[in-house]
């Protein structure tokens, strides 16, 4: 990879996969856990990864973590100011 400016944050070893959820997927997640949005863990809209994937405030981001115990774990965060 030349010109390391252009590297994608999601390629970094420490950064798990982030993806924005559609309205429909988001409500399914909330239904599954029987919670409302504000009860989710948060992520700031200003942070680099959200900037890169183009998240807006009150979007829900799905994070697919590589876990040492479960190998793969899903995690959800609410985008906040």
């Amino acid at each position: 990879m030349k010109g390391s400016n252009k590297f994608s944050l999601l390629d970094h070893n420490l950064v798990p996969h982030h993806q924005l959820l559609s309205e429909n997927e988001a409500s399914q997640v909330l239904k599954k856990y029987n919670i409302n949005k504000e009860q989710l863990p948060k992520i700031k809209v200003k942070e680099p990864v959200i900037q890169e994937i183009g998240g807006q405030v009150s979007d829900i981001v799905k994070v697919i973590r590589t876990s040492q115990t479960a190998r793969e774990a899903e995690f959800y965060r609410l985008v906040i100011e």
């Binding site: 944050l9 970094h12 420490l14 950064v15 798990p16 982030h18 680099p48 990864v49 965060r77």
Partner: peptide
């Protein structure tokens, strides 16, 4: 790490 790569990377970094 948090400033450059974000919160999830920071979490991984704390664990590591």
């Amino acid at each position: 790490i948090y400033e450059v790569f974000g919160i999830e990377a920071a979490r991984n970094s704390i664990i590591k």
